[in-house]
Design a protein around this nucleic acid. Structure first.
Lengths: 191, 191
DNA sequence: CCTACCGATCGGTAGG
DNA sequence: CCTACCGATCGGTAGG
């Protein structure tokens, strides 16, 4: 929470609201109120409501890539790396729930241009996962009949968490991550 | 496609539009146009836009339960049954894409009452999967450290399909189902 | 950042 | 099922 200016507060408020109610159901008046200003004043800081969405997706993409990306090149074999990546990915979901939700949901209510950019950012992130899956396949530690299908299966399972996990529930995110790492390694026949 | 009255046509149109654009971004004028009438005339057949949503969720829940439910009591051991259920589940997603999408997405733009009912229907459906998972655990054919976590993992992976599968792509839904059955059985250490 | 407001569009209704 | 319309609310702007 370094420099926290008004613009950041607006984006933060929008992320929470988009995550909770969806893009369309969130009004610029909701966002302004949450940020402590009036809706007209919002436009001194942003161009459009849709730009706000894009900014959230970009920051979330950075969160995920920043947490998971460096792990691809760290020491360790593919199963170990994948375990770290899963923990990091679920960690971001846990710490940045609202941002993650906006980022992971392909919101169909937006303009094509916005959706294309959001999709591009997600695809770029997915390549990190491909890299490690391929590494494990090359080393013979992962068994996959169809790599891209397997990646989709795994990432869908992981991202599903955002639909049911609530902090303070029966399991901590770390406990969930421990379980999920095991399940994913089973999928890959790696244990 | 038995009796196909105007009301059914309206619900069908709404399902396609809600799936494509979301509940909020779909207007009653969109729905009416798709059904070939004017928006005011819609209200001779429905009470509110939200009722339309509920009706779609109810029919989709019936689709899934009708296709998967009977398989729980059929002949065969748990792994065989689970394989059949996965194929049936993906079959519904394939044949009733729009309905499935509306049903599977917990739309946060709706009233509490509506969301509670939709959640109830989804929970009821999930119990079918719990039954078979428990059967496999009892027979020693499935290995799970945490049954409910494993169910969430598996169903998230399966339902993720609705976000990427498009008919006419590289793989048929049957081919995807074949792969996914194998991956799920691996998760359960059942092969 | 506020006041004051815009044109457009929304879900839904009355009366036929 | 249409015509005609309602009050409310929407994203965004002008002028300060």
């Amino acid at each position: 929470m370094a420099r926290k200016n008004r613009r950041d507060a607006i984006i933060e408020a929008a992320a929470e609201l988009f995550a909770a109610k969806g893009f369309r159901a969130t009004t610029v008046r909701d966002i302004a109120e949450e940020a402590g200003i009036l809706s007209g004043s919002l436009y001194a800081h942003i161009a459009t409501k849709e730009d706000l969405y894009l900014e959230i997706v970009r920051r979330a993409a950075q969160d995920f890539s920043g947490a998971v990306g460096p792990l691809v090149d760290e020491r360790g074999d593919a199963p170990v790396k994948l375990g770290r990546m899963i923990r990091a990915h679920l960690g971001v979901i846990d710490r940045s729930r609202a941002w993650a939700r906006v980022y992971l949901d392909d919101d169909s209510e937006l303009s094509e241009a916005t959706r294309v950019e959001a999709r591009r950012l997600r695809r770029e992130y997915e390549r990190l996962w491909d890299a490690v899956l391929q590494e494990g396949m090359a080393s013979g530690q992962f068994l996959m009949a169809d790599e891209s299908l397997t990646r989709l299966f795994i990432l869908s399972a992981l991202n599903g968490i955002i639909r049911w996990y609530r902090p303070g529930g029966r399991l901590s995110i770390e406990a969930v991550a421990d379980h999920y790492v095991q399940l994913v390694l089973r999928v890959l026949k790696a244990d």
